[in-house]
Write a protein that binds this DNA or RNA. Structure first.
Lengths: 120, 120
DNA sequence: TATTATAATGTATGATGCACACTATTGTAA
DNA sequence: TTACAATAGTGTGCATCATACATTATAATA
């Protein structure tokens, strides 16, 4: 029983994987900095470790989906990220595909085990 | 523009990751063998590579979520997999969490960019 | 019979992203 | 000055997935 829980955790981790990216991109129509994203997303039910987020932001920037800019005027320097043009496009496509995945999966989950529809 | 597509593919792969497990588990209230799962899931909009599925099945069995049994009576020997008791429980929990993830994500996707709710 | 296609299972390898556990710096409040 | 919060960063290890390949057995076809 105890290790079923551990396996669950791992499976959940895999499930969440990739969704973090959508979550992040969804918040970057307006510029945000890393720390604000961490708290913001957590409040919205998508907890992200800083050690996960920061590398993610850098990856997305390197891929050209985000633009970044340091703001050194405020108290502590903050690095603001914003969706690039490409990022917007990719985000839109991602959302479309995401919905398709969700719909397929909901379908198999609900029809789970009931195979008895007129094919016998 | 061309490489945005590649990045998309990679992001999608990450998105799908983990969902395959739910898809597989959802079909195993009744015994199935690997090949039948591949075709079955593909028809239902969840394409899986055999080279992905077989290791996955073995993993899940090793974790105690699946039971397996060879059937050597039929033409070609087939290895049938079925949800174990633990597997059922884990699947149910996975589904709950999955729905929660979906709901959180849908929420941030739809509220994308509209931050203007009385907190300033 | 020889050949090809397809059903069916399996393995090895490589790329990649995520969590975790750190380090580091700067404000601010005690 | 001590301590904590805000803010950003790095390095390592693990697990999953895709791709490609290998293998056996049957069915079909020439």
């Amino acid at each position: 029983m105890a290790d079923a829980k551990e396996h669950l955790d791992k499976l959940l981790q895999e499930l969440r994987r990739g969704t973090i990216t959508i979550g992040v991109l969804s918040q970057l129509s307006e510029a945000q900095y890393g720390y604000s994203l961490v708290t913001m997303l957590s409040e919205k039910g998508i907890p992200v470790e800083p050690g996960t987020l920061y590398p993610l932001l850098r990856r997305l920037e390197k891929q050209g989906l985000l633009d970044s800019q340091w703001d050194t005027n405020e108290a502590r320097p903050r690095k603001y990220y914003l969706l690039s043009k490409t990022g917007k496009e990719v985000f839109d496509l991602l959302v479309v595909e995401w919905k398709s995945i969700v719909s397929s999966l909901n379908h198999v989950i609900e029809n789970e085990g009931d195979e008895k529809n007129g094919d016998h």
